[in-house]
Simulated assay, not measured.
Amino acid sequence: MKDAEVQKRFFDQLDDFGQLNQLFELLPGVSFFVKDRRGRFIALNRRGCEYCGVSSEEQAIGSTDLDFFPKQRAEEYRADDEAVMRSGEPLVNRIESAPESEGSPRLVMTSKIPLRNRRGVVIGIAGFSRQIEQLREQSADADAFSLVVNHLHLHYDEALTTSQLAEMAGLSVSQFERRFRHAFGSSPRQYLLRVRIENAARMLVETEQTISQIAHACGFFDHAHFSRSFRRIMNTSPSEHRQRHRGK
């Protein structure tokens, strides 16, 4: 209890939350943000402002993801925010679409936590994200993984195995899986699945191919597995996604 009181007194003395925000300005490529329960931005660092296309934090305060990002992206982010606030549990190292155009293949790794008031009621979320390419460049395993990740993005439609990817990186399967998870926060299979689903989501909107054709073109050989994976990652079915975003 004594330690908790010391902590409380210290934070009560802070003049401005923005002082802590300055810390995130020192981390290259990291987007930091705080939102209230309605999804409105309350705080952003410089990288977050760049993603939103504004020159200062003041221009983004009070706005939501829908004001800055493609509708599909904004709805994905909002769904994650609501899940964190509803469960009260953090979301850690989630690989998701970068806040760019609908067809962008870039991915970011995002973590979010619920923010509570003094009564313990969740009043919003705080989070940060880093672009996958930047994580790759800064990793000690950058050289080994650069070729592998590029291969995943170019050949996601093929029947890739972890052993093949490990061999490409010059590592044993166990070493490869451990180092990949350390660098990207997910297993190689999870990363590949996300890349496949992202490309499938794009094709559902941009092409006239059937859902089965798109599933096969993205490396899925079972329609049911594709539909389950798509819903788990995108929080909607392939047909609902196509209907919602077609023509936007």
Rank of each mutant, 00 (worst) to 15 (best):
V148Y: 13
V148Q: 13
V148C: 12
V149C: 12
V149R: 04
N150V: 10
H151A: 11
H151P: 03
H151T: 07
L152Q: 10
L152V: 04
L152T: 01
L152K: 03
H153N: 10
H153T: 07
H153R: 13
L154V: 12
H155A: 07
H155E: 09
Y156G: 01
Y156H: 06
Y156W: 12
Y156L: 04
D157C: 06
D157H: 14
D157Y: 15
E158Q: 14
E158C: 02
A159E: 11
A159R: 15
L160C: 10
L160E: 02
T161V: 08
T162Q: 14
T162P: 01
T162Y: 05
S163L: 11
S163N: 10
S163H: 10
Q164N: 11
L165S: 09
A166K: 14
M168T: 14
A169M: 13
A169F: 13
A169N: 11
G170W: 15
S172R: 12
V173S: 04
S174M: 07
S174P: 00
Q175W: 14
F176I: 03
F176L: 06
F176M: 05
E177N: 06
E177I: 00
E177M: 02
E177Y: 00
E177L: 00
R178M: 07
R179M: 04
R179V: 00
R179I: 00
R179A: 00
R179Q: 09
F180Y: 05
F180Q: 06
F180K: 03
F180T: 03
R181C: 01
A183Q: 09
A183R: 01
A183Y: 03
A183G: 15
F184P: 15
S186I: 01
R189H: 04
R189D: 01
R189T: 02
Q190D: 13
Q190H: 07
Y191T: 00
L192Q: 05
L193N: 04
V195F: 08
